[in-house]
């Protein structure tokens, strides 16, 4: 089942009199349980593509379909709704709330999705255990290693019903061992939980867990290959 579709998506920024074409007619799709890696040099449009796919930016033209729902860029409420219920995010900088414990970070994400009380608490414990942080639930981010923080961010993205996980350089701030553990985690969770996973990366190790790899240059997909 296809979870994410992008059809001929373009994004143009205006900088004074100039137009910057960040994306030019990008089309792709991702199925449930599939891991798609997006590679490309800096400034190629990877992050813009991830922002558009994650309903954080609206495309200048083209269509996005998430979980079978056509994204209407003129309805901010629908964009929020999709981010809340269909998409999970993992960021390079983790973006965990420093004031909250690991469990509270996950629960807060669930609260935004409308999950509260014991239901949210149980789900947070489940996903934190599944990422190997069952013993660190009450730790604040500052008391966790970089790898552990990223695993909390993964847990937050996985908590709830989101069918699509978008990860931006998830191993970018991690040492080799921690990065490898996070990638292993992504692979096993994509398979066991049946989520679609899109990873924007420079890290060549991501190829080891990706089903497909697309390369983007100057806002265009220039290469696509099957990996595993």
């Amino acid at each position: 089942m296809i979870v994410l579709e992008a059809h001929d998506v373009s994004k143009v920024y205006r900088e004074g009199p100039h137009e910057v074409h960040a994306l030019r007619g990008v089309s792709l799709s991702v199925r449930r349980g599939e891991v798609l890696a997006i590679e490309g040099p800096s400034g190629s449009g990877k992050t813009t593509l991830l922002s558009v796919l994650g309903c954080l930016l609206t495309p200048t033209s083209g269509r996005i379909v998430v979980d079978g729902r056509e994204v209407d860029p003129h309805r901010p409420g629908q964009l929020r709704e999709l981010r809340r219920h269909a998409i999970g995010f993992v960021f390079q900088q983790f973006h965990l709330f420093a004031a909250l414990t690991a469990a509270e970070n996950v629960i807060y994400g669930l609260n935004l999705r409308g999950w509260t009380g014991e239901k949210a608490r149980r789900e947070a414990e489940r996903v934190l255990r599944s990422v190997g942080l069952g013993e660190r639930m009450d730790f604040r981010p500052r008391d966790l290693s970089g790898g552990q923080r990223q695993r909390v961010a993964v847990a937050r993205a996985l908590a709830g019903p989101s069918s699509l996980i978008l990860a931006d350089e998830p191993t970018g701030n991690l040492d080799g061992e921690s990065g490898a553990r996070v990638l292993d985690l992504f692979r096993s969770l994509a398979r066991s939980e049946g989520r679609a996973l899109v990873i924007v990366t420079h890290d060549p190790r991501v190829r080891t867990i990706a089903d497909r790899v697309v390369t983007i240059r100057d806002g265009r997909i220039t290469h696509e290959e099957l990996e595993n």
Binding site: L56, R83, G109, R113
Partner: peptide, 16 residues
Amino acid sequence: LADFGTVKALGGGNRT
């Protein structure tokens, strides 16, 4: 700001 951006990215609106 990054925290508030995160809240928005996770589906919270300006009202949140």
